[in-house]
Write a protein that binds this DNA or RNA. Structure first.
Length: 901
DNA sequence: GGGCTGGAATAACTT
DNA sequence: TGAAGTTATTCCAGC
């Protein structure tokens, strides 16, 4: 099917890039940028001279690009219609060249490449005009000031071996338009400026590129999903092992390692390094993910590998991009999401029957399938657009033809619409490797499976998308090391489809009115991709080691008529996917009380899991420098404890003469390296307890710490983005700690549930001082703060704006580097960000195992009510410093600083 | 027989 | 540089 397909693709290519092929060099001033004719895809119209997509003067798309398969969109950008966003159509780039390059089995493939390659270097005089260009051309010849990628040798995917489809990050044609974006010499200055401004962001983007989809393209096949032949697209050898096939390309050519276990790229890989390992010898996995299934392709040049003819068809390239090598400075933006809309041409979720009532408006024009298939591309988001959009927030309204990318922040609620996770998944789910059999679907704590429901709409069936997202402190995005895995079987009642969006597998289910627009997620498992495979990807900066927490991300696009849709998204509580953690780490899901007098002596009851007879509960306090200042093991009442409950006596605080509430933490330890995430606890000054201060008690503590009086206060410690593991080094908490320095870059968090003020299972401790907030002022210290290299200014800026429960002007520490806050955006449409608290500050609200409602409530708690209501007035610099110091003290100990077990 | 699961062996990494 | 401790992957076995 390759041939025909190829032809089609080529034709398509012509249609899209016809002009581009002949386009002048990307060189400066080249007319190449002049692709913005009305007829040309908007993506092709991007030119240097034009305002950045998300800039003040967003590039308008006169009209949506004609629906076409494989259309990808860069980050959404403001649409002509006020309040509406739309994804930018992807550019169509040809991969592999006519002959499919060396590989060509699939012949040159056309990929939508909405990405914009940004470079501060003037483009080469003769930029490649098509993907036929050799990687060298693209990679090295491309104008950019970044180190050229080491050949994109068909790094993973791509058509793998073939197909020539190996996705070239910026094939000539692609780069053509890409470069054109900044090619105008007259705009060189702007170009440089833009480059500078987004460079860091691009770095991150690069890491996002090519999400590890074990089976990027295959699945992406536009053809109707065929459950019976799930692996057929992976090629003959796949035998059902899609991932491996897909990985063939992933690994760069090279001899199969003698070692049964995949060697890490370039020998011992330093996880602390984000650098891309040399492509010289991509990791070879024990499974021979790379070479086992075919002749080893010659090392560089990473030209298109020969695709197995039997594998992916014409559209197999879909999702393929994920594995392509990409320049470090490119950003994979996103992906497209055309797959989300109900398919009219595909079997409905239920037994392949398309639910009636599919909204035309939502239906993907031109066949979603194909779009899905062609979604992979080297997406280089518009840096500025990206940042601004995120920062400024926006309504989740998009065009049906240009849905938001997977890593695009979306609110869980918009007006009356709300996507809610009624039943949260368990906190642990052992993901399975490609080499293993399935480990089943993700389950819910109370039994059964997670349940997702769309509120506020019940007119017609809608497609619910689900993918595996990250659970770190950064913005929610597809997880590079985990992919959703479709579970089938007699016991699976929910029909689902698999699609690949920009390298990320997306499971699609249908929300039916008759089911109250709810779906029981019993068909989603989690696949773990080998770290070595993913890390080898060019541009991949995330590390897999210790990056084992994920979140289930659900998204739905609700038709609004007029070709627009409202996209809402909800993310689950974090799920630990490793075997070890799931079995050994104790987990505190709730506790009560959350504070007591410095004298201690109160009984504290912890509920959770994995508690052992010899579990210890240790209270600790860290100083401003993060060093352990106090540590005391609590006395556990073994008689009143069990595997899920620990009853202990709060130890006496070291300094009983404190005049302010003291924020400390405690964790449950089952032994060295087996500790639960830290939980916050407050020791209250005796004086407060005896003589509660009036409202003015705010004086007693930085005003910034307390929520508004008379509100539904949460006396519990602020919830962190996710549990932190005191025993783990920073890397465990987050591989990016060094970058963010703990200032969480709020990520989208579970966006459903009640306000953070509520936490199930906790007894509101009547903290003296009324609402003074004996609790620490997380808002202050953990407000998003940009860190070096953080293109989003800590992202907090962007997310803070979207805080549903955030006050218009959350307090921000007077940090020079802090970017100005954008206007807060409509709370309703706001993206629920991760709490600003440091990730180390694990909140007790994390109750993954509880019932849906409970969890949701707790989830809501992730967003600190304190922070969101921090009054900035009246706080002094000194107080701020103190607060910050306190917060810093809460950071997880760095390696070597951990408190002794 | 296949899908799940829980365990565990062992290589790869990190400290 | 080597040892020890962790973590990642792959295998096995039982249900």
């Amino acid at each position: 099917m390759g041939a025909a397909s190829c032809e089609d693709e080529e034709l398509e290519f012509k249609l899209v890039f016809g002009e581009e092929k002949e386009a002048p060099p990307l060189g400066a001033g080249g007319p190449g940028e002049e692709l913005d004719s009305e007829d040309a895809p908007s993506c092709c119209r991007l030119a240097l001279g034009e305002p950045l997509p998300y800039g003040a003067a967003p590039i308008g798309i006169p009209r949506p690009p004609p629906p076409r398969p494989g259309m990808h969109s860069p980050p959404p950008r403001p649409a002509p219609s006020p309040g509406t966003w739309e994804s930018q159509p992807a550019r169509s780039v040809r991969l592999g060249g006519p002959g499919g390059g060396a590989g060509g089995a699939g012949g040159g493939r056309v990929l939508e490449c909405p990405s914009i390659r940004i470079t501060s270097i003037s483009p080469t005089p003769d930029p490649p005009t098509s993907l036929e260009d050799t990687p060298e051309t693209w990679g090295d010849g491309s104008p950019r000031d970044y180190p050229p990628p080491e050949g994109f040798g068909g790094y993973r995917e791509a058509g793998g071996q073939g197909g020539g489809a190996f996705f070239s990050p910026s094939p000539g044609s692609s780069s053509l338009s890409s470069w054109s974006f900044f090619s105008d010499a007259s705009d060189e200055a702007a170009l440089y400026a833009a480059c500078d401004e987004v460079e860091s962001e691009l770095n991150e983007a690069a890491s996002r590129f090519g999400l590890s989809s074990p089976l990027p393209s295959p699945r992406a096949s536009p053809r109707p999903w065929t459950p019976e032949d799930p692996w057929s697209l992976y090629g003959p050898s796949s035998g059902g092992r899609a991932p491996e096939d897909s990985l063939l390309l992933l690994s760069a050519p090279g001899p199969i390692p003698a070692s049964p276990r995949p060697a890490s790229p370039c020998g011992k890989r330093r996880y602390s390094s984000s650098g891309t390992p040399s492509s010289a010898s991509p990791a070879l996995s024990r499974r021979g993910s790379l070479g086992e299934e075919g002749p080893e392709p010659p090392p560089p040049p990473p030209l298109p590998l020969v695709r197995d003819p039997s594998s992916p068809g014409p559209f197999d390239y879909v999702g393929a991009p994920a594995t392509e090598s990409i320049p470090q400075k490119t950003r994979r933006t996103s992906s497209e999401q055309a797959v989300a809309l109900p398919r009219s041409e595909e079997p409905a979720p239920c037994n392949g029957k398309l639910p009636s009532g599919t909204d035309e408006a939502v239906a993907a024009p031109g066949g979603l399938r194909k779009e899905v298939a062609g979604m992979d591309y080297l997406a280089v988001p518009s840096p500025l657009a990206w940042s601004k959009a995120r920062i400024g927030g926006h309504s989740p309204i998009f065009r049906t033809s240009a849905l938001p990318p997977l890593d695009w922040p979306l609110p869980s609620q918009y007006e009356q619409l709300e996507l809610r996770i009624e039943v949260q998944p368990r906190a642990h789910h052992r993901a399975h490797y490609e080499t293993e059999g399935s480990r089943g679907a993700v389950k819910a704590a109370p039994g059964g499976h997670p349940v997702v429901k769309l509120l506020g709409y019940s007119e017609k069936p809608l497609t619910l998308q689900m993918f595996i997202g990250t659970a770190d402190e950064r913005s929610l995005r597809p997880h590079a090391f985990y992919q959703v895995h479709r579970i089938t079987g007699k016991m699976v009642a929910t029909a689902s489809y698999e699609a690949v969006v920009s390298g990320t597998k997306v499971l699609e289910m249908t929300l039916l009115p008759e089911n109250n627009m709810a779906a029981n997620i019993d068909c989603a498992g989690i696949l773990k991709l080998r770290n070595s495979d993913i890390e080898l990807r060019k541009g991949e900066t995330d590390i897999g080691r210790k990056n084992t927490r994920v979140r289930l991300v659900f998204r739905v696009h609700v038709p609004q008529g007029g070709g627009k849709v409202v996209s809402v998204q909800a993310a689950s509580v974090p799920i630990e996917c490793s075997q070890r953690s799931a079995q050994e780490l104790p987990q505190v899901e709730a506790y009560s009380p959350s504070a007591c007098s410095v004298r201690g002596g109160e009984e504290l009851v912890l509920t959770g899991s994995n508690f052992l007879p010899d579990s210890k509960v240790v209270f600790i306090e860290r100083g401003p420098d993060g060093k352990l200042q106090w540590e005391e093991e609590a006395v556990v009442n073994r008689l009143q404890s069990s595997e899920v409950t620990l009853t202990l006596t709060v130890p006496e605080y070291s300094n009983k003469r404190v005049s302010r509430p003291v924020q400390v933490y405690f964790y449950v330890s089952n032994g060295r390296r087996k500790r639960s995430p830290t939980q916050s606890f407050k020791f209250l000054p005796v004086v407060f307890k005896e003589e509660p201060l009036p409202d003015s008690s705010l004086r007693g503590f930085p005003s910034a710490s307390g929520p508004p009086f008379g509100t539904d206060m949460d006396f519990s410690p602020p919830r962190p983005p996710y549990p932190s593991y005191p025993h783990e080094d920073s890397a465990y908490e987050t591989p990016y700690l060094s970058e963010s320095f703990g200032y969480s870059t709020p990520a989208l968090y579970p966006q459903t549930g009640p306000p953070p003020s509520y936490r199930p299972g906790l007894r509101m401790f009547p903290e003296p001082g009324g609402t003074t907030g004996c609790a620490r002022p997380p808002a202050v210290s953990f407000l998003p703060r940009p860190f070096p290299g953080d293109p989003y200014g800590g992202q907090g800026s962007s997310f803070a704006l979207g805080l549903p429960f955030s006050p218009p002007a959350p307090f921000r520490p007077p940090l020079p580097s802090s970017p100005p806050l954008e206007d807060p955006f409509n709370p309703q449409s706001a993206v629920q960000p991760l709490p600003a608290e440091g990730y180390n500050e694990v909140g007790p609200g994390y109750t993954p195992g509880e019932g849906a409602s409970e969890q949701e409530k707790s989830r809501g708690g992730y967003s600190s009510g304190f922070r969101d209501n921090v009054p900035i007035q009246g706080i002094t610099l000194e107080e701020v410093s103190e607060i910050i110091g306190r917060d810093l003290s809460g950071f997880p100990a760095r390696p070597g600083e951990e408190p002794p077990a």
